[in-house]
Design a protein around this nucleic acid. Structure first.
Lengths: 144, 144
DNA sequence: TTGCAAATGCAAATTATTTGCAATAATATA
DNA sequence: TATATTATTGCAAATAATTTGCATTTGCAA
């Protein structure tokens, strides 16, 4: 994992460039699925730069506030963090192996309009996750 | 709030009829929006029948396992419980006052089929919540 | 290079939830 | 109806995730 410096990027958000923040950004760029604060912390510990778990929480909190990261929590599970997606997308989560696949093509635009008319709410956001079993886990389940 | 006895109903699920369970069922039938375990506990304390908070957790856990109740957690918030909806529906949540409106007419059937084809997942479930501002809160926000 | 605010580390606090265990209550059955 | 059996409850203590207070360190602007 190449060591990068995100000073400019961080300063743009009014944050100082620290080795901990650079490290976390680097980790976040390299993970393919959302990770918990603890998982990120454990990855961080493997590098030279030492980081404290509360610092990880604090950094992720600030990142989330600035929309650098997205914080989600699946059904009954702890929060996970990932870089904030640049395009609108949702998550498809395997209930067995917890693998996450990102899917585009959100079908909710029209539905939201209908609901707004019905309810007088002004809808600003939604949360959609799909749950199922990935191909591998389907096989494993079928074999038992 | 009328005191009812759900003995038959509970036995059907292989559960004994206890005053705590009857009380919780009664509370659940009477609430219009999902409540946290603690909120339910506080309502329970107002009745004659005393209940312990861990008992509330244990009952709600069992109810949820039996699909008597639905356990959800909104963005970053603690779990809430409600009677398991008899029809498929989703929640529309006011970001200001936390009011919840239930909406039917889920638009995801077709979308799920498309995603299944794209991804080889077998989709068994989804979670959809809409967030926005209710009419009252829109007014309050506009007035500031 | 110095000064100051922001960021960090550490330990301790909080919050929601769960668990162990002894006491109690509900049901089945004698 | 009494009794045995087992589930359920209450209580206190444990756990797990996350947050906070405070002293120290660090980044950056002047």
């Amino acid at each position: 994992m190449e060591e990068l410096n995100y000073k400019e990027y961080l300063n743009k958000y009014g944050m100082k460039s620290t080795k901990q923040r650079n490290l976390l950004l680097n980790i976040l760029k390299n993970i393919k699925i959302p990770h918990t604060a603890e998982q990120i912390y454990l990855k961080a510990r493997k590098s030279d730069a030492l980081v404290n778990l509360s610092t990880v929480y604090r950094i992720l909190e600030k990142f989330t506030e600035k929309k650098i990261t997205l914080r989600t929590s699946f059904m009954d599970e702890k929060c996970v963090y990932s870089l904030f997606p640049t395009t609108h997308q949702h998550q498809l989560i395997c209930l067995r192996c917890k693998k996450v696949i990102l899917i585009g093509g959100c079908p909710l635009k029209e539905f939201e309009k209908t609901v707004e008319k019905q309810t007088d709410f002004s809808i600003v956001n939604h949360r959609l996750e799909l749950y199922g079993y990935c191909r591998d886990c389907q096989k494993i389940i079928a074999a038992n």
